[in-house]
Simulated scan of single mutants.
Amino acid sequence: MPDLLDESVDVSVEGIFNWILLLTIFSIITVIGNYVGYKHPIYDSLVGMGILSVITLIGVWLERKLPLNISSIIYISLIGIFIAFPGVPTSETVLYYVSKVELLSIVTVFLAYVGIGIGKSWDEFKALGWKAIIVTVLVIASTYLGSAIVAHIVLVMTGVPM
């Protein structure tokens, strides 16, 4: 069975369909999490995820179609910045709907997907040995601790009560 996301440079109908399917599943799960966890209206969250998914799809397509060696994340960021930039006719609509999608909802679904991806290659991960597990745990713990420290410093500097 081929991978859901084809890494080839060519953009096939099947590859685009796979991206649309993945983004649809991702969006539905995120919208459910958004509704349950943050009480955002389903319609608004769904439109926001639709906007984010279309931007993602266009960015991936540009990466594969243009002869430049630029990552899709650059295209996705530039498209998002452009359509949300003040003064652009799409700005108010994009900002309204995308603000109804909580980052934590997106990250939760993304990390679950990454976990599934690691699970699929568990044999390769085990082949790295016990040292790789220690390094992985330390990296994750350090990232979390570093983020918590930075967040704490920013909150204290902005006067948010603890």
Rank of each mutant, 00 (worst) to 15 (best):
G59W: 03
Y75Q: 08
I76D: 02
T56Q: 04
I79M: 07
I73P: 02
G87W: 11
Y75E: 05
R64A: 02
L78G: 07
L68K: 05
I81P: 04
I76P: 00
I76C: 03
I74V: 15
I79R: 09
Y75T: 05
S72H: 13
R64Q: 05
L62V: 05
I70A: 07
W61G: 02
S71R: 05
I74Y: 14
N69Q: 12
L62T: 02
S71L: 02
L57M: 11
K65C: 01
I73S: 14
L78T: 14
G80S: 13
I83H: 08
I76K: 13
I79C: 08
F85I: 10
I83Y: 10
I83F: 07
I70C: 05
S77C: 11
I74M: 15
K65S: 12
T56P: 01
S77D: 03
L68W: 13
G80M: 04
P86I: 09
A84I: 11
K65L: 06
Y75P: 02
R64T: 03
F85E: 10
I70G: 05
K65M: 08
I79D: 06
V60D: 02
L66V: 13
K65V: 13
V60Y: 05
I83G: 06
I74S: 12
G80V: 10
S72T: 03
A84F: 13
G59H: 07
I74G: 08
A84Q: 14
W61H: 04
I73T: 15
E63S: 01
E63Y: 00
F85N: 09
I58H: 08
N69D: 14
F85L: 15
K65Q: 02
G87S: 11
W61K: 01
L62G: 01
G80Y: 11
I70M: 09
L66E: 04
L62A: 07
I70V: 15
F82A: 15
T56G: 12
N69W: 03
I83T: 13
P86G: 11
E63F: 01
T56D: 03
N69Y: 13
I79H: 09
I76A: 08
I83A: 14
F82I: 15
S71Q: 12
G59F: 03
I70Q: 07
I74E: 07
E63I: 00
I81A: 13
Y75H: 10
Y75M: 12
I74T: 15
F82R: 11
L78R: 04
W61T: 11
P86Q: 08
R64P: 00
S77N: 07
L66C: 09
L57F: 06
T56W: 12
N69G: 03
I70R: 08
I83M: 13
L57Q: 05
S72Y: 14
S72A: 12
E63H: 01
N69H: 08
G87M: 12
E63C: 01
G80C: 08
T56E: 04
S77A: 13
P67H: 05
S71A: 14
N69M: 10
A84W: 12
R64H: 09
I81H: 10
L68H: 04
I70F: 09
I76V: 15
W61F: 14
L62E: 00
I73C: 02
T56R: 07
L57I: 10
I81F: 13
E63N: 04
V60C: 02
L78K: 10
I81T: 11
L68D: 05
I76W: 08
N69C: 00
P86Y: 09
F85R: 10
I76M: 14
I79A: 10
I76Q: 12
W61Q: 03
A84N: 13
W61V: 08
I73Q: 05
N69F: 09
